[in-house]
Design a protein around this nucleic acid. Structure first.
Lengths: 119, 119
DNA sequence: TCCATATATGAGTATATATTCATATAATAT
DNA sequence: ATATTATATGAATATATACTCATATATGGA
């Protein structure tokens, strides 16, 4: 914040224009939160398995070879961000994906990664 | 890892099948790193401004109202992940976007966020 | 050559986050 | 009722990460 550098290749008008077009902070916050959910290997594994089929918590723990609590916590994050939904059956809780966009998100990400490999 | 829960609604065959289809850990790592880059408001601001036009570091600092170092560090992350490119001109360094997918990434993310609002 | 400017980098710190452990809750079965 | 099973949750800890400050580098001009 306290800088001496004053390059300003852009004019005051351009500056104002650009700043005005910047999405509101609230939107930026929600965007970064959204991406943050995908920035974790455990949650990615869960999302992958759920993209294949509906699964209960215990099975997700088995599949990921992680503890039950280590699955419940990320599942809560996925619930709160509305990426998964669930239904109860007896004492089990079955989770499934709750967003059509998830596949698109992965596709774009994979494109970027694969493109990097080509270079 | 040391759990007693053994729900296993899925069979041993299903389990093996699902685990085999899971993308390799290296891919999952790179995916989570990729998303992690977008999980930061400062980097999102930088990416937005660069989506509008090529800019030097000092201008990015002015636009974001952050210090020069606070911009250089995230720029390094964006460079290493190949999301931005740069060119030198005298003592300035001009950054610009280096990935066609970025717009798609944002579009999908915005769709999710807006959909959540509707509910 | 010496100085000024623009940017990069490393260390330090403060904060966020993932995992573990222990425990709570909720539903079922005996 | 009590025990059992599946899941959720809170606290604690360990690790990662963002920002600040100080300094280094690199380029151009005097």
């Amino acid at each position: 914040m306290s800088e001496t550098t004053q390059c300003k290749m852009i004019s005051a008008d351009e500056k104002k224009n650009l700043q005005d077009r910047l999405p509101p902070l609230e939107v930026l916050q929600r965007l970064s939160e959204f991406f943050g959910v995908f920035a974790d290997e455990t949650r990615l594994k869960i999302l992958f398995f759920l993209s294949q089929q509906e699964l209960c918590v215990a099975d997700l723990a088995t599949l990921t070879q992680m503890g039950q609590s280590a699955i419940s916590h990320p599942l809560k994050v996925l619930r709160l961000t509305r990426l998964v939904k669930y239904r109860k059956e007896k004492t089990s809780i079955f989770y499934s994906l709750d967003d059509d966009h998830i596949h698109s998100v992965f596709e774009v990400a994979m494109e970027h990664i694969l493109e990097g490999d080509r270079k």
